[in-house]
């Protein structure tokens, strides 16, 4: 097996810049696509993570988002539709020291790859998943996706789509994900922060990124991303902080019979103690679910930020422990002994 030197002997990681992570391939997303921002913020944040460049591995499925690895000067594997989580699992289990990233989209992760997605979440490999959610199929030219709203009129649904959409955050939480967050392509600073937090979390980190497809679903998230409407329609989650939003931070969210209720912090008889306080480290996922469901309730803001971040054992570590235990209990495998460990007989 390959000798890893950097884990044994501390060597100075050469200073890297964004430039080091740009590949020589022309980026071929449509002009104005939200993917450009996600690529750029990722390239900007990677040099700060303290990982040697050669240890980054980007694995994608199929779709616009999945072209991402070609544009990263890192190890990359553009696999097949929906299956990136499975390939990433194999990489991570064989080489836990690598920093493994899955790049996927709403169709890739939640339609064709839905099964792999939920199982990746529950196994909790130390892998980071960036899901570019544009609520549309872009590469196949504009069919509705599993996150499109019901009634979506597209080429494949001229009278409107019939399916109820997935809420990716709810799905990830229900699948046992240990880190669940949401960010925006048009909020570079927040996006970088969330990507960094995802990296720092030990375990599967799931990040849903609202991403604008300016060709087939332009403006799907504008009410959450544009200056005029953003403050009124989103609430940014901060651990330990109350759920307060609005341009003047004058609105709060409280519980009313298990429903979120928006109330004014400046008018009426309300007390700030009624505000829901965010706790991303709560082992009990109830609050995280509650926050996740806010995105489908009318007239409450969409939560953006880290919904949940808890510590659980990682699959690859448990696997390594089993290997170590087996070696301790039975000794390092001896092929000769293995082949002969049965009732044998000699023929002279």
């Amino acid at each position: 097996m390959r000798k890893r030197t950097f884990t044994e002997i501390p060597v100075a990681v050469p200073t890297l810049t964004k430039k080091n992570f740009e590949s020589d391939q022309d980026v071929r997303w449509c002009p104005g696509c939200g993917d450009y921002s996600i690529l750029s913020q990722t390239q900007r944040i990677l040099p700060d993570l303290g990982v040697p460049k050669e240890d980054f591995v980007f694995i994608s499925g199929i779709g616009c988002s999945s072209r991402f690895p070609y544009y990263m000067n890192a190890y990359g594997f553009h696999t097949i539709h929906g299956r990136a989580p499975t390939v990433a699992a194999g990489v991570k289990v064989a080489h836990p020291e690598l920093s493994v990233w899955v790049i996927t989209g709403d169709g890739d992760a939640l339609s064709i790859g839905g099964n792999h997605f939920i199982h990746l979440m529950r196994r909790n490999f130390d892998i980071n998943v960036l899901l570019f959610n544009n609520q549309i199929y872009g590469l196949t030219k504009g069919q509705y996706s599993p996150t499109s709203e019901q009634g979506k009129t597209t080429f494949s649904t001229p009278m409107g789509s019939l399916d109820n959409p997935f809420n990716p955050i709810s799905l990830a939480l229900a699948s046992g994900a240990t880190f669940v967050a949401r960010s925006l392509d048009r909020d570079p600073e927040h996006l970088r922060g969330v990507i960094k937090a995802a990296f720092e979390h030990k375990g599967t980190s799931f990040v849903e990124i609202y991403q604008n497809c300016n060709v087939y679903n332009d403006g799907a998230f504008f009410s959450f991303t544009e200056k005029e409407t953003k403050a009124e329609n989103t609430v940014f989650l901060e651990h330990g902080e109350p759920l307060v939003f609005g341009k003047d931070r004058d609105k709060g969210i409280r519980l009313n019979e298990f429903q979120p209720e928006v109330f004014s912090l400046t008018e009426g008889n309300y007390s700030p103690d009624e505000l829901i306080k965010h706790n991303q480290y709560a082992e009990n996922p109830t609050l995280a679910y509650f926050l996740a469901r806010m995105s489908v309730i009318p007239d409450v803001p969409h939560p953006i930020g880290v919904f949940r971040s808890i510590k659980h054992a990682c699959y690859e570590d448990l696997m390594a422990q089993q290997v170590e235990t087996a070696k301790r209990q039975r000794g390092e495998g001896d092929l000769e002994a293995l082949l002969n460990e049965a009732d044998t007989w000699r023929v002279e």
């Binding site: 694995i59 989580p85 499975t86 390939v87 699992a89 194999g90 990489v91 289990v93 064989a94």
Partner: peptide, 8 residues
């Protein structure tokens, strides 16, 4: 998929 990832 896992086997391919491991091979990669």
């Amino acid at each position: 998929g896992a086997a391919i990832g491991a091979a990669f």
